[in-house]
Design a protein around this nucleic acid. Structure first.
Lengths: 127, 127
DNA sequence: CTTTATCTTTACGTTAACGTCAATATATTT
DNA sequence: AAATATATTGACGTTAACGTAAAGATAAAG
């Protein structure tokens, strides 16, 4: 539901990370949950942001890179200089990701070759 | 050329890494160059192996993961138990890579959307 | 055959991304 | 309200992946 609220441990459980991780990301300015008293409350947007962060990690980005990446999303589109920086940043990331995709495709085809060889070798043993 | 030999610094330069990195990978048993006296000499295969390692890094793998990965290539295909472990390892990596590819594709399309918005915003400013 | 430049080894330093207490503060249960 | 559980805030610890500086060995240049 769009309006669910989570405590730190709840969100952590849902996302499969530790509460410490959430706090750590907060000190790194990657997320910024509301407080009720001094307790952290995460809303839907916080959760969505966290999912973006985790996706970034799966891709192999550092937290710093992920922060830059997130900043791309909420950059102010009224400043021309900002816009140009944004454009360049986006362009760099795009070509990096394209390279990464190529690397993965190559690795995948090699692994599939190994997989084939493996299953054939195992068939041999069974006959 | 298939028979070129490199010193540590030469290969490091070619690959765009430091000589320290080469030595470090050696202590981690990722590569194992010949010695002439106590000097390291890298041949074509060492270089190819290094390129595999660097590709692994671009994909976001840790050196430990890369080692496991390399071990997949030169596993002994005569041992049935070995083969089964190999098969499982390969299978895991494959699904992980497929997930990574999905993550990248999503990120790419989002970035392209930002790119479009950026260029449109810049056009506006120029008219 | 010295001098000079490279390479090697050893060892300590560094950064990223958290983990793991310990001491409080705040809820929650009884 | 007292006891118990849970969350927060330092603060120190840890692992990965090298960087960097020091001291000795060896090769190349003069």
């Amino acid at each position: 539901m769009k309006d669910t609220l989570y405590t730190a441990t709840e969100l952590a459980d849902v996302l499969g990370v530790s509460a410490r991780t959430l706090r750590f990301y907060e000190t790194k300015k990657l997320i910024n949950p509301r407080r009720v008293g001094n307790r952290r409350i995460y809303n839907y947007q916080d959760s969505a942001r966290m999912k973006l962060i985790l996706r970034g990690k799966r891709i192999g980005f550092s937290l710093d890179e992920i922060k830059q990446f997130l900043d791309l999303y909420d950059a102010d589109p009224t400043q021309v200089e900002q816009l140009k920086l944004l454009r360049d940043g986006v362009e760099q990331r795009i070509s990096q990701l394209i390279q990464q995709k190529k690397d993965i495709s190559q690795t995948l085809s090699e692994l599939k070759a190994i997989q084939l060889a493996t299953s054939e070798a195992l068939e041999q043993k069974n006959s």
